[in-house]
Simulated assay, not measured.
Amino acid sequence: MTGAFRLLGTPRFGGIMVVSDHASNRVPDDIDLGIDRALLDQHIAVDIGVAGIAERMVERPGIAAFLGNVSRLVCDFNREEHAPAVIPIASDGHAIPGNALDHAGHEARLARFFRPYHAALADTLDAAPAALILSLHSFTPRLATSDEPRPWQIGVLYNEDDRAARIAIPLLEAEGLIVGDQEPYSGRLLNATMNRHAEAEGRPYLGVEVRQDQVGTAEGQARWADLLARVANQVALEIS
Rank of each mutant, 00 (worst) to 15 (best):
E238T: 06
Q234M: 13
G216D: 11
I178T: 14
P141A: 06
L177D: 03
D162A: 15
D162L: 05
D32V: 01
R211D: 14
V86I: 10
Y185P: 04
V27I: 07
A165E: 00
R150C: 07
N195G: 08
A51Q: 13
A131G: 15
P116C: 04
A65D: 04
E81S: 08
I53K: 14
P170Y: 11
E59G: 14
V18L: 14
E219S: 10
G62W: 08
C75Q: 08
Q212L: 03
R112Y: 14
R6P: 04
P184K: 03
A45K: 09
R109T: 13
D213Q: 00
S135Y: 09
T140P: 00
G202M: 05
F5M: 01
A51Y: 11
G68P: 05
P151M: 11
V74R: 03
H106S: 07
T145A: 11
I53Q: 13
R37M: 08
Q221F: 12
E199T: 15
A85I: 14
S138Y: 08
V50K: 01
P116L: 08
P28M: 01
I87C: 11
R188P: 00
G68V: 12
F139Y: 09
D29N: 09
E81Q: 04
F5T: 01
G93P: 14
E160H: 15
F139R: 02
G34V: 08
L67A: 15
R223K: 03
G207L: 14
I44T: 03
R163F: 02
A122M: 05
V235H: 02
Y117N: 07
N78I: 11
I35K: 00
T140H: 00
A168D: 06
A144D: 09
A104Y: 09
F13W: 03
L206N: 11
V27S: 03
S186L: 02
L172N: 04
Q234G: 03
G14A: 00
A192V: 12
A23W: 04
P129E: 10
E183D: 13
C75D: 10
I16D: 01
H118K: 08
I16R: 10
P97V: 01
Q234F: 05
N99I: 01
A218N: 03
